[in-house]
Design a protein around this nucleic acid. Structure first.
Lengths: 166, 166
DNA sequence: AAATTTATGTCAACATGGCTGACATAAATT
DNA sequence: AATTTATGTCAGCCATGTTGACATAAATTT
């Protein structure tokens, strides 16, 4: 397979001269890696993972959202969701309530326990963000928020606008 | 287990009034979700995943880095790395060369094939970033880069400074 | 009223990419 | 000569994603 001749190593690094913004690509990788490391440590104490965190987060931010709506935000399959959601319900962090108008739907709400955990997970992330903005002007903050929002697929930006205001 | 009484649902959303910057937390989640979706589609054609992408990226940006250095950047175990690295070597995207001074080390280099793939993966990400910066001033760009860098753990920022300049 | 569609749940099997622990080898260092 | 270091490898486990198939109840359409 592959080649008969040993493939030659390339010894020069890729740089901005190749026409690509590697530095921001890498900044996003490192920033996100460390941004998620804070809650990961807390979650480990509960036997939960990042998947539980995401569910708990959006159930707290959009109480009463349906299973279908949550799937749409998370972009995972219902079978993936089912496992983590069941654990969150079994441990009393989330409750499911049958929809009033449409009784097929299951509205998802946090319990007091689920709210407390969601806050505990968000706190170190918020602290990290506040520290990163420490020397920034209000205009610079807005520029960062505009940039991040513009990174999202246009047709999915509506999801952001549905979330409770800032 | 849990409680005898059905846990009460909380019907009010978490908001900024809870003292936490939820909007930036969510912007980071959505931005990163879509930022990684571009290369994911290309990788699927090769039977590769995000793990291959990360290895290929840093081998191209830091040709000749050793296995230990790569582990330090990725923050994974050598057993995790071994699987994806072996596939990249077997498919002729990466070559390993014994270190000259220290012959225990394996220096990692991209091949022409590996460089081409790394560029193909970075291109849509760079395009997305360029589009997100479209209406930003140079000062605003710098503010975004400062913010992202400040989000990284201080002791790990040295890793960023080792990468080829912008 | 009957047929169809929709929202959800569930079972089974599988893939990826993390992890730990144990052990092997060759080369460098002490 | 003994020890440490850089790397590789085997085995097994776990979390979290996937697809496909099927079940149920409720809403909607015919």
């Amino acid at each position: 397979m592959a080649n008969r001749t040993a493939a030659e190593p390339i010894r020069t690094p890729l740089t901005i001269e190749d026409g690509i913004d590697f530095s921001v690509i890498e900044l996003l990788f490192f920033a996100y890696r460390d941004f998620t490391s804070d809650p990961d440590e807390i979650l480990a104490d509960y036997g939960f993972g990042r998947a539980h965190h995401r569910v708990l987060h959006f159930v707290n931010r959009l109480p009463g959202l349906t299973v279908a709506e949550l799937l749409d935000v998370l972009k995972i399959t219902k079978q993936s969701l089912a496992r983590v959601l069941k654990q969150l319900v079994d441990t009393g962090h989330v409750v499911q309530i049958q929809g009033l108008q449409d009784r097929r739907q299951r509205e998802l709400y946090p319990t007091a326990k689920g709210r407390t955990l969601a806050l505990a997970l968000a706190r170190p992330q918020s602290r990290r963000i506040a520290a990163a903005f420490h020397d920034a002007t209000p205009a610079e903050r807005r520029a960062v928020e505009r940039f991040l929002k513009a990174m999202v697929d246009p047709e999915l930006r509506a999801q952001i606008d549905k979330l409770p205001g800032e």
